[in-house]
Design a protein around this nucleic acid. Structure first.
Length: 509
DNA sequence: AGTGCAGTTGACTTT
DNA sequence: TAAAGTCAACTGCAC
């Protein structure tokens, strides 16, 4: 049995794989010798939202974290198993009464696990201290004052990494860190150049501040320029290799110097939005499975048309720019925000798929999958929040606007590469004789559009306008707005159309 | 140089 | 983080 007087401090690493700006680690180190652990939880890494790239990225970050801890005279103990059973095993092997970690705003699985760990800790007399690592405020019921609290959080200077970490993990066995945390395979060639780890994260931040960020504001819209000029820090934020606060501090410092003010401000407002969306999941975990606006719950069929879903997932919808974006995403694990919105818009409005039928697929593709942002976004781009106006993207217009020369399409949809700049956005408009002379047969080398955009969108709008005639929709919209709505006065929200009242009809004016 | 007209641009509204 | 429609102001051009 473990010694009851142990002053050993157990630091449980989760989605915070770094040593800088890591308050639990610093506080634990001040309180006693540190035992650093990471748990590979089957329930987490085998869940439908956990992708192959996540397993690789996290494994890279873990290896680097272990190396960093070793430099501080410590090490990382890695175990596989469900959290409570592993914590109990370690406690019985070495004994500790203090457990430290960051607050996590995760999916249902990690939320339930955290509650179980809480109960376990209480029963064992272990004091578990959870500390926030971003602008998400635990226990907030509505959005009044949130923006101010976020600013407060970002004011604090990031914490330095500890200089030394007293070690006392004894003979505790640590598993070898695998090359990836799960055996999941996407069946798609991935060639992402994003490598997990705190050092890599800092290098990415440096290159953004020192050059890539110039023109960020303008260049983030097109997938042609976004890959280089967006920060691409999101995976490092999601897996915790870099804290939001430390990126915010570095960007503020560089603004007006190596980074133009407009670009820096644009990046900072995105850091703000990052936490804004996570806060929604923190406040209402049900949004993983239910529409923000419950009146939208049965709007679309819950069972997807399998052929439509498959065409969308594999980049075979017949809309060249859309397919290019999907294929690029699946290969690189990342695409810019605007194109993510377009992909979801197409699934939701053109294909009339319920967001719940594609959210896990998309989550597995995004190397920067962050549950709170993801659930909010797929719902928002599907129009089921009730507090945002419908934003329906035209894949052809987006293609002409964001990839006018068609170069991005040619790269990711090579079967169309012989088409001209004008033809490539709408190959179905090209005479079949001319297509044939270029060795392209639609329906064989590349599909015809699986739906007609204009027709599909018209139908979708009609369904929404019917929904908006129901009182329940507006009651729900008011509730969502109270709980989650941004308090920015500029935000535009749909307004209920005035009913033609008798009074209005007969008012003479 | 002024006028009429078709076509363009931009701000704003609607869905 | 949309797109299409409306309307008025503007532009270029012919006469």
């Amino acid at each position: 049995m473990a010694s009851r007087s142990s002053d050993l401090q157990c630091v449980w690493f989760k989605r915070d794989l770094r040593i800088s700006d890591h308050r639990p680690l610093v506080e634990a180190a001040n309180a006693g010798p540190v035992l650093a652990i990471f748990i590979i939880e089957p329930a987490v890494v085998e869940a439908p939202d956990y992708g192959e790239i996540h397993g690789v990225f996290q494994a890279q970050a873990l290896r680097e974290l272990d190396a960093a801890l070793k430099k501080l005279g410590n090490r990382l103990v890695v175990r596989r198993g469900e959290a409570v059973e592993v914590l109990e095993a370690i406690r019985s092997e070495i004994g500790f009464q203090a457990l430290w970690s960051h607050e996590e705003t995760g999916n249902e699985i990690t939320y339930r696990r955290d509650r179980e760990v809480g109960i376990w800790a209480k029963n064992r007399g272990v004091v578990w201290t959870e500390i926030s690592q971003n602008g998400v405020i635990r226990g907030l019921c509505d959005r009044d004052g949130w923006a101010g609290l976020w600013r407060e959080r970002m004011k604090d200077a990031p914490l330095d990494a500890p200089i030394r970490l007293r070690e006392r993990s004894g003979q505790l066995v640590s598993e070898e860190i695998p090359n990836k945390l799960s055996n999941r395979e996407e069946g798609w060639v991935t060639e992402t150049d994003m490598v997990g780890g705190e050092i890599e994260g800092r290098a990415v931040l440096d290159s953004f501040i020192e050059g890539r960020g110039k023109g960020y504001r303008k260049k983030m819209s097109s997938p042609v320029t976004a890959y280089d000029h967006c920060s691409r820090l999101s995976p490092y934020f999601s897996w915790g290799c870099l804290s939001i606060r430390s990126a915010v501090a570095r960007v503020r410092e560089a603004m007006g110097k190596s980074l133009p003010r407009a670009d820096g401000n644009s990046f900072l407002s995105r850091c703000h939005w990052h936490c804004h969306f996570m806060q929604k999941l923190e406040a209402e975990p049900e949004i993983e499975h239910h529409c923000f606006n419950r009146a939208c719950e049965n709007l679309r069929p819950r069972n997807p048309d399998p052929e439509r879903l498959e065409a969308w997932c594999s980049g075979q919808t017949g809309y060249p720019f859309l397919d290019a974006c999907m294929r690029s995403l699946r290969t690189r694990g990342w695409i810019n925000f605007r194109m993510r919105a377009m992909l979801v818009s197409f699934a939701a409005y053109d294909l009339w798929l319920d967001w719940r039928s594609f959210k896990d697929f998309l989550a597995r593709q995004f190397i920067d999958y962050e549950p709170g942002i993801h659930f909010s976004q797929v719902q928002m781009q599907s129009g089921v929040t009730g507090i945002n106006t419908l934003r329906i993207y035209s894949p052809v217009k987006q293609g002409r606007d964001q990839d006018p020369s068609g170069g991005f399409i040619r790269r990711w949809v090579p079967e169309l590469s012989s088409l001209s700049e004008d033809q490539i956005h709408e190959p179905w408009l090209v005479q079949s004789g001319e297509l044939k002379s270029l060795d392209i047969v639609l329906g064989r080398h590349y599909p015809r559009p699986i739906v007609d955009h204009q027709t599909a969108v018209k139908k979708a709008r009609l369904a929404f306008s019917e929904l908006r005639n129901m009182d329940e929709f507006w009651e729900e919209a008011a509730r969502v707005n109270r709980r989650h709505g941004s308090r920015r006065p500029t935000e535009k929200r749909p307004k209920r159309r005035k009913k033609e009242s008798a009074q209005q009809e007969f008012t003479l004016q």
